[in-house]
């Protein structure tokens, strides 16, 4: 339960930061996507099922918050959660290099889904410009991993947000 409260708080924090502070941290016109990072971290420690569900709910909330194209981020974050969760079952989580790789691949894939869904839904987007967002965003998110992943990993495995069986609560 604590995990979900923690995720909710972090999600709100991420939304606020995303719409305020991160505007000033934009590099090459792209700001880091902290909600995406949050979903990836969660899924990477909790598996594909929970990861996908978490991605779907946070994505939907983000969509509602943004207020248009409902489902775009939901789909993208669902995929990101599932993908990162799938990596969880295959890869060694404690290694920072692997986390970097997972974040890069998952970020790029999820933003690719945003682009795809936008184009598939018939929006007037330029796909070339879309790739100019995807790669910098994936790189930017990856650059944030060394500062954030250890904290999350510790919290998710041994700290405040770790999984507690029912009998422990």
């Amino acid at each position: 339960m604590r995990r979900y409260i923690g995720m909710a708080v972090l999600f709100v924090l991420a939304l606020v930061l995303q719409s305020t502070v991160f505007n000033f941290l934009a590099i090459a016109g792209v700001k880091p996507d902290f909600v995406l990072l949050l979903v990836i971290y969660f899924a990477f420690t909790n598996g594909p099922g929970k990861g996908a569900l978490m991605g779907l709910s946070l994505g939907l909330l983000e969509d509602f918050y943004i207020g248009r194209f409902i489902g775009m981020n939901a789909l993208a974050l669902l995929a990101a959660g599932f993908l990162a969760g799938w990596f969880e079952t295959k890869l060694y989580k404690e290694n920072l290099l692997i986390a970097l790789l997972v974040v890069f691949v998952t970020s790029a894939a999820s933003q690719g889904i945003v682009l795809f869904s936008g184009l598939a839904a018939g929006l007037n987007w330029d796909s070339g410009n879309g790739f100019n967002i995807i790669w910098p965003l994936a790189i930017y998110n990856t650059c944030l991993v060394p500062f954030t992943y250890p904290l999350f990993y510790h919290s998710f495995t041994r700290g405040w947000m770790r999984y507690r069986p029912k009998h422990e609560q």
Binding site: D63, F64, Y65, G67, F69, I70, M72, S117, A121
Partner: peptide, 22 residues
């Protein structure tokens, strides 16, 4: 998702209580 995206695009006016609350 695609249908939803298509029908909630820019300029469309749909009820969004959750988003407004947020």
């Amino acid at each position: 998702a695609l249908v939803s995206i298509r029908f909630t695009g820019t300029g469309t006016d749909f009820p969004n209580p959750a988003g407004n609350l947020l």
